[in-house]
Design a protein around this nucleic acid. Structure first.
Lengths: 220, 220
DNA sequence: CCGAATCTTTATGATTTCTTTATGGTCTCT
DNA sequence: AGAGACCATAAAGAAATCATAAAGATTCGG
């Protein structure tokens, strides 16, 4: 998933690039309309982030040129608030319109949205910790990309630990949260399940992720 | 192109309806979350305009329910400005987010946008997963091109699973979504129907598509 | 009202998962 | 270093869950 950023303000451009990279996209920076168009016509991209206020060529013109050649999503960023302008842009083929100043998280969310819609399924809402990745919806857990099969309680336990990395959970907490039952006195149950999870992770990783904290509980 | 409006404020609702009608869409008004859901489940729509601040059922809940049953675009309208909320909604499946107060022209432009986009996708009306293909309209399901005859509940179940591939549905969810009744305690009903669906698929395919996830539910 | 199709319940065997038990190791505190 | 508390793991028996067939109940069109 390659995204072309066209934005003359260096600071904003960098922020966008960083955010995109962090979210797992490949981001290419350009700092003027002409540079953007040049890159667009010589390289392959899956999406364009286009600032409207550009020196030289106007943003609207850039949008038009891009749309003439391709049908990839173009997300427009602009401080302009006049409705006419917005509406025109959207009609001209912009996929979305984001008003400056924007929150990077919203930009990201909208990018994810359009990425999903355009069929490229590169974005996931996985919970991850290092080599461990947990997908709630499909109830799948993988280690270094290898799916491991966890039972219900194992899944709940690992999910909890990954959800709050470093946090130490007492056995009581683990039991009550993963079992949704009251914890009655000490038994070995949680230990056994933790042990089983470790064994399964060990198949695909050399790191011992789940650590015991003596007298307290466990953490990842 | 039928659009469902869910908005409790009568004035805004009317403005939207008028704008949509003027732009050549067929607009259906509803004034609460429950009414919206009711209409949604009994009539056919191509898009939903959803206000977030609803009396009774929360907008977020409405969005979720709609997305469980169908994949049509949902445009969310809201006065909320908190980014977290926005981002969550978009991730939850909203197709767009429009902040109130809005300009009708912008709303229209965004609707046109999504109408166009979903038009591209509705070329084929079939839901498919590998060898399995489901046609909502004709209520026909085929495996490798061979039509199999499913009963009402079987159809609903399989449709759900295919609509969200990989997602694990609990028996409760399956029952409530496919039966549209409350799930009371454990019985074997869902199991039996799943088993029957499998048998029918097996006639024309060697793959076991519907998988049980122990203690959780089923997924395709 | 009958019959066919569909749905639910019941029954049973198979499979998976959970808990308990047992044993040995590790850590902490004095 | 030694005692006691705690953790790790394996293994086995117990419990829960699933798969399927078949029987009984319900629904619906004619």
């Amino acid at each position: 998933m390659r995204i072309l950023i066209i934005e003359d303000n260096e600071e904003i451009n960098d922020i966008l690039k960083e955010a995109l990279t962090g979210a797992g996209y490949e981001a290419v920076q350009s700092f003027s309309g002409s540079e953007g168009l040049l890159r667009f016509s010589t390289e392959d991209f899956d999406m364009v982030l286009l600032d409207l206020m550009l020196p030289g060529i106007k943003g609207e013109e850039v949008l038009q040129k891009i749309k003439e050649k391709s049908d990839i999503p173009v997300l427009v960023l602009s401080a302009k608030t006049d409705i006419e302008g917005k509406v025109n842009l959207l009609r001209q083929g912009a996929s979305d319109y984001i008003t400056k100043p924007f929150d990077v998280r919203e930009v990201l969310a909208r990018i994810d949205l359009h990425a999903k819609n355009s069929g490229n399924k590169t974005v996931s809402n996985d919970l991850t910790y290092n080599e461990i990745s947990i997908n709630d919806e499909s109830h799948v857990c993988s280690v270094n990309g290898n799916e491991i099969s966890l039972t219900k309680h194992e899944f709940n336990l690992l999910r909890l630990l990954v959800l709050h990395p470093e946090k130490v959970y007492s056995k009581r907490e683990l039991f009550e949260l993963a079992w949704e039952e009251e914890y009655i006195g000490e038994d070995n149950t949680v230990n056994v399940h933790i042990s089983n999870i470790r064994k399964k992770i060990r198949e695909y990783s050399d790191n011992e992720y789940i650590k015991a904290v003596w007298g307290i509980g466990f953490r990842i």
